[in-house]
C-alpha cells in the first residue's frame, strides 16, 4: 500500500501511461543506432583521410635509371615546362636512403636510381602523357602515379566524412521532432489533469519538469539500447577497415567508445530540453 502511494505521488499526471515506454524509446533506439553508425563513419573516414593525405604527399614520382643520372637537370627543366605540372623537385640521395631503409636496410653501396617528385596542378590531370613525353627525351625514365589514386581516395574519404556529419545532424533534427510529437500526444491525453494541477497551484516549471524528466529518461534508455545494438555492427566494420587505415586488427579498441557512451546522456538531454520547451509553450494558453 505504501509503495503504491509513493508511486502515485511521484506521478500525479499519470505520465507512466500517457508517455508509454515502448514507442518513444524504440524510435530513439533506432536513431541512436543511426547516429552511432554516422559517428563511426565520420571518425573512420577522418582516420583514412589523414593517413592517405600523408601518403599522397608525393603525388607523382619519376625514376631515371642510374646511367641517365647525369640528365637529371634536363629532365627537371623539361618537366617544369610541361602544362599541368605545378612543381618538380629532385629527391636527394640522403632522403632516398631514408625512404628505402624499411625495405633494403643500410646499404650505402647500392647504386640508387635518381628520383624526382612532381606535383600536378590538380588531381584530375592524367599523368600518362607526361610520362610518355619524358621517356622520349630521356630514355628509360619511368613515371609512377599511384599517389594520384591515394589523393583521390583521400578526397573521397573527406566527402564521406561530410556526408556522415550531415546524416548525424539530420538524425538529431528528427529526434527533436519525434520527441516534440510524443510530448504533444502526452499533453493532449493529459490535458484535463494538467488543467487541474494548474488550477490547484502547480507551477509551469513543476508541470514541464514532470514531462521533461519522464521523456528524458525514456530517450536516454532508448539511446542506451541503440548504442548497445551498434557495438557488434561497428566491431565487424572496424575489423574490415583496420587494414585500410594501416592499423593492426584490434576491433574492440578501434570502436568509438566515447561517442557510444555519450549517446544516452546526449539523447536524454535532447529529450529533456525539447519536452521543457514544448510543454512551456503549450502552458502559455493557461493563465
Amino acid at each position: 500500500m505504501a509503495e503504491r502511494r509513493t508511486r502515485y505521488a511521484r506521478d500525479p499526471l499519470g505520465l507512466k501511461r500517457a508517455l508509454s515506454d515502448r514507442l518513444l524509446p524504440g524510435l530513439v533506439a533506432a536513431m541512436a543506432l543511426l547516429a552511432a553508425l554516422a559517428l563511426a563513419g565520420s571518425r573512420g573516414a577522418a582516420a583514412l583521410k589523414d593517413r592517405w593525405q600523408q601518403g599522397a604527399a608525393a603525388a607523382v614520382t619519376v625514376q631515371l635509371p642510374p646511367e641517365q643520372a647525369a640528365r637529371m637537370d634536363d629532365a627537371l627543366s623539361l618537366l617544369r615546362a610541361m602544362p599541368g605540372v605545378a612543381a618538380a623537385e629532385a629527391v636527394d640521395s640522403a632522403r632516398m636512403r631514408e625512404l628505402l631503409r624499411p625495405w633494403l636496410g643500410e646499404v650505402p653501396a647500392l647504386p640508387l636510381p635518381s628520383v624526382l617528385e612532381l606535383r600536378l596542378e590538380n588531381l584530375s590531370i592524367d599523368p600518362a602523357p607526361i610520362g610518355r613525353q619524358l621517356a622520349e627525351a630521356v630514355p628509360g625514365a619511368e613515371l609512377e602515379a599511384h599517389g594520384i589514386w591515394v589523393a583521390r581516395l583521400a578526397a573521397l574519404a573527406r566527402s564521406v566524412q561530410g556526408v556522415a556529419l550531415a546524416v548525424l545532424a539530420l538524425v538529431v533534427g528528427v529526434a527533436v521532432a519525434v520527441v516534440a510529437v510524443a510530448t504533444r500526444a502526452g499533453l493532449a491525453s493529459r490535458r484535463q489533469a494538467i488543467e487541474i494541477l494548474h488550477d490547484l497551484g502547480a507551477t509551469q516549471g513543476d508541470i514541464a519538469g514532470r514531462f521533461a524528466r519522464r521523456i528524458g529518461l525514456l530517450a536516454a534508455g532508448g539511446a542506451l539500447a541503440g548504442a548497445a545494438l551498434a557495438v557488434p555492427t561497428l566491431g565487424a566494420m572496424a575489423s574490415l577497415a583496420a587494414p585500410l587505415s594501416g592499423g593492426v586488427v584490434q576491433p574492440w579498441s578501434a570502436l568509438p567508445w566515447l561517442d557510444l557512451l555519450l549517446l544516452p546522456p546526449v539523447a536524454g538531454a535532447i529529450g529533456w530540453a525539447t519536452a521543457q520547451f514544448s510543454v512551456r509553450r503549450w502552458l502559455k494558453r493557461l493563465p
Partner: peptide
C-alpha cells in the same frame, strides 16, 4: 476550490487526490 464538476484526477486514489495540494505545496 470545490469545483462544480469535482475535477478529481481519475487515476489517483481518494488519498492521493486529497494529498495533491499538499504535495504541490
Amino acid at each position: 476550490v470545490v469545483f462544480q464538476d469535482f475535477r478529481l484526477l481519475p487515476y489517483l486514489s481518494a488519498f492521493d487526490n486529497v494529498a495533491l495540494p499538499l504535495r504541490l505545496a
